[in-house]
Design a binder for these strands. Structure first.
Lengths: 332, 332
DNA sequence: GTGAAAGCGCTAACAG
DNA sequence: CTGTTAGCGCTTTCAC
């Protein structure tokens, strides 16, 4: 059995409370008491039982972060950023994989494990309008990148629509006239529909048919999805001089498929993605994309969540994070 | 305040223990009791307080996984694999970022948070021989990819040395005679030194000087490190027809730098990495690498750790995971 | 400034 | 098969 606080107290000849005070950096402890306690802790090799403290305080010091899977680079990078931000405020992050599926996303809200964290950073991608009620939870939560489903919750709003528009306008400015879109699916929420809306708006504004060439997408926004989509486009003989993938991973898979097919990028087809993952800077050619402000999203989400947990929140807040266009070789 | 088990018991008119039995799927509960309890749970919207159970059982159902950072694709993929494996055995994974630094790696072993997980999956990369004592911990732990520091702990041994040898032999077989190495550093433990040892063995066996062209490396095995290393090699006019990066991320950064410099891969320089991350299959050209058996590593590590946690372990075990050479475009 | 006692919500013997 | 009784190790009023 591990050493307990009580044993430390006995060893030091003080009360339990005093040990607790020392351990928790309580100010008003005499120097002699403190050093006596610290010595005892050292001699016994005492380590605080965090679980016991958690039960007592009703806090765990953990923030849950729900993501589809870490294999998708964007979410790995987001998780890293969230962990850093949480660490600065003294919190630990518990990553909850949802597999990008509706059931997984709902589970996060209801599983008993939920009670192991003080709050949740949540960006559903597969929920439906009908699930809005599930978002009425009784624990601290911050929603990322969405505002479709509900407005009663703290939000960090990504510039999905604006980003889609920027990318499209950029491709049009480069002379593209037939832009294929990869990754569109019929989810009612999620970044996809918003980004697509921005794309369509830009196409319409340019007098082009927004439904002209849209490759069917997939729920899983992976490199393989991008590769498969291009294969399909080429197989059915689609003509396009621009290719807009709704995230970078798909764009990178698409570029690989174009290369295999002997289609030159940007010569014959200009390509763009969304997310600005690190990989995109190193791709050949490097990928034009939108930087959604991942760091700011992570930092703000954590701050908002911690404010709410610690009772500093003042009403529901919505924070907009601006996106910036990053033009690289794939569309020049 | 949330609903407690006691309230459920009162509401259902049964004892605390009965509710506990139902919640924990205890077999010998009469159907009528069970349904009564379940009804009460439903009506009150009861949710188990996991922290309280943790304190009571002395278990948390969590496994800690220490990794440098999720931004490095190999570790993101490893984390995903570990999470899947843990989930199958009913455990949750708590990711502990070490920043790939000695202090971070030591912290994981000693921080109070340690007590929030039942065991640790640990792959130190920056510890020194002098830190071996720190590995004598009193909680369940499985070491990944190492055996240098101690042998008193369960190990999953990656084929680092064999992989390094395979890659080198492959490059030699392709006709390479001057192979530059990227990522070597003077750490006393870690995959690097083992991989490098395999490389040197193969070079020596082929009658080449193992110290001929070795680019200085970095502790952080990132794309940027790879790019920088190639820049340095080219700047100092190093001659090489093969380039072996000690992981894929560096190899991908290196390929980008070679391309920028107008060096053809594999025409002028054949390139290889190590890890077989997903990105490598989509690179241009696709990257020759070694698949270290990530899935098996993850699955075995979790199984071993859980066996030890649940008291099924029989002595210290060491599990070897074979690596396989994956030849792709970058070295053909 | 320090101590004593009560309890956080649950599990685990042990009776019955 | 179900109920009672003790804790798990810590925090936290409230006295002293």
């Amino acid at each position: 059995m591990a050493v307990t606080m009580r044993q430390v107290a006995q060893h030091a000849g003080v009360s339990l409370k005093t040990v607790s005070n020392v351990v928790n950096q309580y100010e008003h402890v005499s120097a002699s008491m403190r050093s006596r306690v610290l010595a005892a802790i050292d001699e016994l090799g005492y380590q605080m039982n965090v679980t016991a403290r958690n039960l007592s305080t009703g806090r765990t010091g953990m923030l849950a972060l729900a993501v589809p899977e870490l294999q998708l680079p964007y979410f790995a990078e987001l998780a890293d950023a969230v962990m850093d931000a949480a660490d600065e405020l003294g919190y630990t992050v518990l990553i909850e994989p949802t597999a990008g599926m509706r059931t997984g996303e709902l589970d996060v809200l209801r599983s008993p494990r939920r009670s192991m964290s003080d709050g949740l950073i949540y960006s559903p991608t597969a929920l439906r309008d009908a699930d809005a009620a599930a978002l009425a939870v009784d624990f601290p939560m911050v929603l990322l990148g969405e505002r479709a489903l509900t407005s009663d919750v703290d939000h960090i709003v990504m510039a999905n629509e604006a980003g889609g528009r920027m990318l499209t306008e950029h491709l049009l400015a480069q002379g593209c006239r037939r832009i294929a879109i990869i990754g569109a699916h019929d989810a009612e929420v999620g970044a996809g529909s918003l980004r697509l809306r921005g794309v369509r708006a830009a196409l319409t504004a340019a007098g082009l048919d927004p439904d002209d060439v849209v490759s069917s997408g997939s729920q899983r926004w992976s490199r393989e999805t991008g590769r498969g989509a291009v294969a399909e486009l080429l197989t059915r003989g689609a003509q396009f001089d621009g290719l807009l993938a709704l995230n970078d991973a798909m764009a990178l898979g698409a570029m690989r498929a174009l290369w295999e097919a002997g289609v030159e990028v940007p010569g014959q087809v200009r390509v763009a993605g969304f997310d600005d993952i690190e990989e995109s800077r190193y791709a050949r050619p490097s990928l034009t994309t939108v930087n959604p402000g991942r760091e700011e999203i992570a930092r703000t989400a954590v701050r908002l969540l911690v404010d709410r947990i610690e009772g500093r929140a003042t009403g529901v807040s919505e924070h907009q994070v601006p996106a910036t266009l990053v033009v690289r070789e794939s569309s020049r």
